[in-house]
Design a protein around this nucleic acid. Structure first.
Lengths: 252, 252
DNA sequence: TTGCTCCTCACGTCACGTGAGGTGGC
DNA sequence: TTGCTCCTCACGTCACGTGAGGTGGC
C-alpha cells in the first residue's frame, strides 16, 4: 500500500494537493495504518490521476466530483465542453503572443486602424514623434469618451490632410513646440491657422452637432493646447484672429 | 478627461482592476476632480493597456512595473522570455487536450506503455475486464513503490505469457473469481499453479534479490489475493502444494 | 540518535470579486 | 427625485503554499 508521499510522486501532484482533495471531498479518505498514516491502493491512484487531469484542464474542483460520478453520456458531453474551453484558451494565448510582440512597437495596441493610418500619415509628413504622441493621446481620449464621433472626425482629418496649406501649418505647429512663446513666428502661424479655419468652415461638416461632440471637441483641444506654453499662445492668438475674420465677414 | 469607468471600458479591464493597479503602485494615481473622482488622460490609457497586455500574458503584477521601467534591451529580453512561457503554456494545454480525450478510455493515462501492452495481451486471451483491472491496480502499486523493478518484472511476465500452460492457468484463475471457495476445481487449479511455479523457477530470474523487491512481491500478491475469497483459497492451496513439491525434490 | 515522512491546524498568497455604506452628477 | 457612477474600507474566493508544533519509521 502507498503512503501519501508515494501516491503524490506517482501521480505528479503535491502532497498538499492530495490532502486538499480529501478536504474538498473530491478524493475519498483511505484507511489509516496503525500510526494514523493514510494508506492508498491502486484505485486511489487511478482516481487521483483522473482528478488531476480534469483540474489541470481548468475544471473547477467543485465540478470534478460530479463529473466523475456522471453517466458516460453526460461525461462525454462535459469532455467536449472542456476541450472547447481548452481550444479557446489556446487561441487566447496565441493572441497574447501577438499583442506582447507589439508591445515594444506602435499604437496598433491602443487605437483603431483608421486612426493609426492618420498618425502614420503625420509621420510621413515629417512631424516629430512627440507631436504624433500628443495627437495619439488626444484620439484615445475621444475614442474612450465618444466612440460614435470617430468615423466623422477621421474623415474630417483626412480631408484636411489632403490640403497642402493644412499640412504646411501642421508641420510648422510641430516645430513651434520648440519656439519661445514670444517668438514672432507664432503670431504669423496663428494668422495662417485662422485663415485656414475660416476658409475650410464652408466645405467641412460642422462637428458640434450635439453635446457629446462639443465635450469631445473641448477635451481634445484642451489636451493639445495644454501640451506646451507656445501652443497655448498659438491657440489664443489664432482664436482671436478667427473672431476678427468672422466679424469682418458677418458684421453683427 | 476620462472617468475610471470610461478608462476601464476603453482598455477592457474592470474598474476594480484599475483601482487594484493603483493600490499596487503599478499605475500612477491620477489627479482628482472637485468631487474626488479620478480623472485620466490618454497617457494613462496607454500605460494601462501595456499593464493589461503583460498581466494577461501571465506576468506577475510585481514584475510588471520594473519591466515597463526597464531599458529597451532589457525589456526586449523579458518579452522573449514571456513569449517562450506563453508557447510552453500552449504546448501544455495541447497536452491536456490529449489527456482529457483519453480520460474516458484506457490506462495509457496511468501506466507506462510496456505494462499497457501486457494488459492488452491479457484482454486478447479473453481475460475479463475485472481481472485486468485488478492486475492493473497491482502494477500501479508496484510502479509507485519500486519503479526500478519494473523492467525485470515486465520481462518475467512476458516470458510467462509465452507459455501456453501459464495462459491456461491465468484464464482459469480469471473464471475462478466466480467460483465458490469450496468448488473442487479450485484445488485442481491450485495444483496446476504450483506445478507451473515449481517448473518455471529454474529458468526465470529470482525476483527477491533485495528487500525492495520482497516488499513489492508481498504487496502485489496480497493485493491480488485480497480481491476475492476464492482467490484467497486458491493461493492458500497453491502455496501448500508448492511446499510439498519442494520438499519432495530437495529433502531437508 | 538523526533525518525524513507523516499528522493537523491555520494563516498566507495571488489577482482581483463582491458587498457595505455613503456621496456626486444628470 | 431616481438611477447610475464614483468613493473607501474590508471581507471573500480559488487552489493550494507554507510554516508551526508534534509524532512515527528506519
Amino acid at each position: 500500500m502507498l503512503t501519501i508521499g508515494q501516491l503524490a510522486a506517482y501521480t505528479g501532484v503535491t502532497v498538499r494537493a492530495v490532502r486538499h482533495y480529501h478536504q474538498r471531498g473530491l478524493l475519498a479518505e483511505p484507511t489509516r495504518d496503525s500510526s494514523g498514516y493514510r494508506r492508498y491502493d491502486g484505485r486511489a491512484a487511478v482516481e487521483l490521476i483522473r482528478i488531476k487531469t480534469l483540474a489541470e484542464a481548468g475544471v473547477p474542483l467543485a465540478r470534478i466530483r460530479e463529473l466523475l460520478d456522471a453517466e458516460p453520456g453526460e461525461f462525454g458531453e462535459a469532455v467536449t465542453q472542456i476541450d472547447e474551453a481548452l481550444r479557446k484558451k489556446i487561441r487566447e494565448l496565441a493572441q497574447h503572443r501577438r499583442k506582447i510582440a507589439e508591445l515594444a512597437g506602435g499604437e496598433r495596441l491602443f487605437l483603431p486602424p483608421e486612426i493609426v493610418e492618420v498618425l502614420d500619415e503625420l509621420r510621413r509628413m515629417g512631424v516629430t514623434e512627440r507631436t504624433v504622441q500628443i495627437e495619439r493621446d488626444a484620439w484615445i481620449l475621444v475614442v474612450a469618451m465618444s466612440p460614435e464621433v470617430i468615423p466623422e472626425w477621421v474623415s474630417v482629418k483626412r480631408a484636411a490632410l489632403d490640403d497642402p496649406e493644412f499640412r504646411r501649418i501642421y508641420v510648422l505647429g510641430d516645430q513651434a513646440l520648440d519656439w519661445d512663446p514670444a517668438d514672432p513666428r507664432i503670431a504669423e502661424l496663428a494668422d495662417a491657422m485662422a485663415a485656414w479655419a475660416a476658409s475650410s468652415r464652408e466645405d467641412t461638416t460642422p462637428v458640434d452637432e450635439n453635446s457629446g461632440n462639443l465635450a469631445a471637441v473641448a477635451l481634445m483641444s484642451s489636451h493639445i493646447v495644454g501640451s506646451s506654453p507656445s501652443w497655448q499662445r498659438l491657440n489664443d492668438l489664432a482664436q482671436k484672429r478667427l473672431e476678427e475674420l468672422r466679424d469682418s465677414r458677418d458684421p453683427a
